[in-house]
Simulated assay, not measured.
Amino acid sequence: MMRGPMRVLVLAAVLLSAMPALGAQAVAVSVEELARASDAVVRGRVTTSRAQRTDDGLRVFTTYEVRTSAVLRGQAPTIAHVVVPGGVVGRFGQRVDAAPAIAPDEEVVLFLRHAGPDAFRVTGLAQGKFSVVGPVARPDLSELTFIRTSVRHGERRAEEMPLAELERRVRSIR
């Protein structure tokens, strides 16, 4: 039978192992890296969303309809369907670490990769989605822990910056 301090240590280890993780680990990427890895980069407004379960019923994904106001790189339709892992269907919800949080009527800049003939996924997950608030663009990186934060010399990490600078950096990539 365990006594005193050993019992407390074992109990603490069990309790700590049952706690949820505080966020995903990520390697910081630059705006330029995101642009190079994307099929399209768009600025637009989220108009609708629809969450659904996969055919096996084990996962949830949400499709957002984004009305593009500008294509900064690549080609994208006027209405882009952006698929993000996670969401809520009825009483069943699923949260995916590092998935970008997108809200209806939000103005965004999205770095996108094709995920089928009429659908896209966000490149770099949360790092590839910037909310536009006035003249500022900012990704929500609050759920990420970075294991490496440096990027190539002359490039800028995906972080809050003036919208004009974000657009200039994306358009500079050939």
Score class of each variant (00 low, 15 high):
Pro139Met: 05
Leu125Asn: 12
Asp140Ala: 07
Val136Met: 10
Thr78Met: 08
Arg138Thr: 14
Arg113Trp: 00
Gly57Gln: 07
Thr62Lys: 08
Ile102Gln: 07
Ala35Gly: 00
Glu159Ser: 14
His81Ile: 00
His114Leu: 10
Gly90Thr: 09
Pro77Lys: 11
Ala12Tyr: 03
His114Ser: 15
Val60Cys: 00
Val46Tyr: 08
Ala37Ser: 15
Leu11Glu: 05
Ala70Gly: 01
Ser142His: 08
Ala70His: 12
Leu110His: 06
Thr145Lys: 11
Ala24Gln: 12
Ala28Gly: 06
Ala99Glu: 04
Leu34Tyr: 07
Leu144Phe: 06
Arg50Ile: 00
Asp56Thr: 11
Glu155Lys: 06
Val132Gln: 05
Arg45Ile: 13
Arg157Thr: 14
Ser150Ala: 11
Pro104Ser: 08
Pro162Trp: 02
Ala101His: 13
Leu166Asp: 01
Gln52Pro: 00
Leu22Ala: 13
Pro117Thr: 13
Ser131Met: 06
Ser131Lys: 11
Ala37Asp: 14
Val14Cys: 08
Arg157Asp: 02
Leu166Glu: 02
Arg73Glu: 08
Glu33Ala: 15
Ala28Met: 15
Glu33Phe: 00
Leu141Cys: 07
Leu34Ile: 09
Ala24Val: 04
Ala21Gly: 10
Gly154Asp: 03
Leu125Ala: 15
Arg169Val: 09
Leu166Phe: 04
Ala126Thr: 05
Ser150His: 05
Ala28Thr: 11
Asp97Met: 15
Phe92Val: 15
Arg157Leu: 03
Val82Lys: 04
Val88Cys: 15
Gly74Phe: 02
Thr47Ile: 11
Met161Thr: 11
Pro162Leu: 07
Arg91Ala: 12
Asp55Gln: 14
Val31Pro: 02
Thr149Trp: 02
Arg121Met: 03
Arg36Gln: 07
Arg169Cys: 02
Thr145Ala: 09
Ala103Lys: 12
Glu65His: 10
Pro77Ala: 15
Asp118Tyr: 13
Glu159Leu: 10
Pro20Gly: 08
Phe61His: 15
Leu166Lys: 04
Arg148His: 12
Ser172Arg: 13
Leu72Ile: 07
Val133Asp: 12
Gly87Asn: 07
Ala18Asp: 03
Ile102Leu: 15
